[in-house]
Computed example of a mutant assay.
Amino acid sequence: MADFDVLCVGAINFDLIATVDHVPVDDERMFAEAMVSATGGPAATAAVTLAKLGYRVAVSAAVGRDSAGDFVLDALQTAGVDIRYVTRHEAMTTSQSIILANQVSGHRTIITQQPNGLPDQFPLDAAPVIHVDQVGFGLIDPLLSDDSTRRPRLSIDAGNPIPTLDLSRTWLYTPTVAALTSRYGATPKESALAALREGAELVVATDGSAGSWWFAPETEPVHAPATKANIVSTLGAGDVFHGALLAALLDGQVPSDALRFANTCAALSCRAIDGQSAIPTRSEIRSHQELATATLNKENQ
Rank of each mutant, 00 (worst) to 15 (best):
S209Y: 06
A226N: 11
W213K: 07
Y184V: 02
N230V: 12
Y173T: 05
G211L: 09
L245S: 12
I273W: 09
H223I: 04
A210W: 00
I285Q: 04
S256F: 01
A244W: 15
W171C: 03
G275E: 02
S283V: 15
E284C: 02
A200G: 07
G243T: 13
A216H: 09
E190T: 11
S287E: 14
D207N: 12
A262D: 03
Q253I: 08
S182A: 14
I273L: 12
G243I: 08
G185C: 03
I285D: 05
Q253W: 09
K228H: 13
G185M: 00
A178G: 12
L268H: 06
A200N: 04
T227S: 14
T264Y: 12
E220I: 05
A244N: 07
G199A: 14
A210Y: 00
A267V: 05
A186L: 05
A272W: 03
A226W: 09
R260Y: 02
L180N: 02
Q253S: 13
R197W: 00
L268Q: 05
T281C: 00
L268W: 11
G243E: 09
W214V: 01
G252E: 14
H223C: 08
G199Y: 06
V232L: 14
W171M: 07
L172M: 13
Y173I: 01
S191R: 03
A266Q: 05
R169Q: 10
L250H: 10
E220A: 15
L193V: 09
D239H: 06
A195N: 01
I231K: 13
Q253V: 05
A194Y: 00
F261N: 02
I279E: 05
I279Q: 03
I279T: 12
D251S: 12
G236A: 02
L245H: 09
P280N: 14
G208I: 03
D251I: 04
